[in-house]
């Protein structure tokens, strides 16, 4: 990720080279967009916010230091921008364990009939998972995205979200538990329909 070519681009962008900055944008534009889109849901708004994220990154670039990982630094700016939108929408809900039926998170077992490589083979499963993800509290959805889609380590997630690594560990576990419970609830709904 933080390869020599990237370091070179950052150094040039810091000196005011717009083309170098554009090359950095090109490296990350789809990933930042994907992260923001899944976080806030609305495609047009996500496009605007992605652009805003890179403009903010450009403004803040003089303050970037080689000790910082560019990706976590960039995603932190995206995180702040997306959180601001979510707050404006008043859609931020914090941990919603109280909403889960008691005990559901602990005794749900995997469906042995489904092999891992076939799990998302059908459109319905994808839709259920997408719906489950969108229904999670934003902070749960976000940490899952950083871990599973961006493949960030706990150290990187901690830097991106500005939280302790211990918090990453516990929040990620809660997020996964809530996602599994939500997915199974939706699967159950579908079977009974």
């Amino acid at each position: 990720m933080a390869d020599d070519a990237e370091s070179e681009l950052i150094a040039r962008a810091q000196e005011g080279d717009h083309r170098a900055f554009a090359a950095l944008v090109r490296r990350y534009q789809d990933r930042v967009f994907r992260f923001i889109l899944r976080l806030i849901g609305a495609r047009d708004e996500a496009m605007d916010l992605t652009q805003e994220t890179f403009m903010k990154a450009h403004q803040a670039l003089p303050g970037w230091r080689p000790e910082a990982q560019f990706r976590t630094w960039l995603f932190r700016i995206a995180h702040n921008a997306a959180l601001d939108v979510l707050r404006r929408r008043e859609r931020i809900e914090f941990v919603s364990f109280a909403d889960l039926p008691a005990g559901e998170e602990d005794h749900a077992l995997p469906d042995p009939a489904r092999q891992p490589d076939q799990r998302l083979a059908d459109r319905q499963s994808i839709e259920l998972l997408e719906r489950t993800l969108q229904e999670l509290p934003a902070e749960h959805r976000e940490i899952l995205l950083l871990r599973e889609l961006e493949d960030m380590s706990y150290t990187e997630i901690a830097a991106t979200l500005g939280i302790a690594e211990g918090t990453v560990k516990s929040r990620l576990a809660r997020a996964r538990s809530a996602a599994i419970a939500g997915y199974q609830r939706h699967s159950g709904d579908n079977r009974h329909e």
Binding site: R119, S125, I126, L149, R176, I180
Partner: peptide, 8 residues
Amino acid sequence: LSTDLRAL
């Protein structure tokens, strides 16, 4: 769950 999310 991890496998599924990565396959979205």
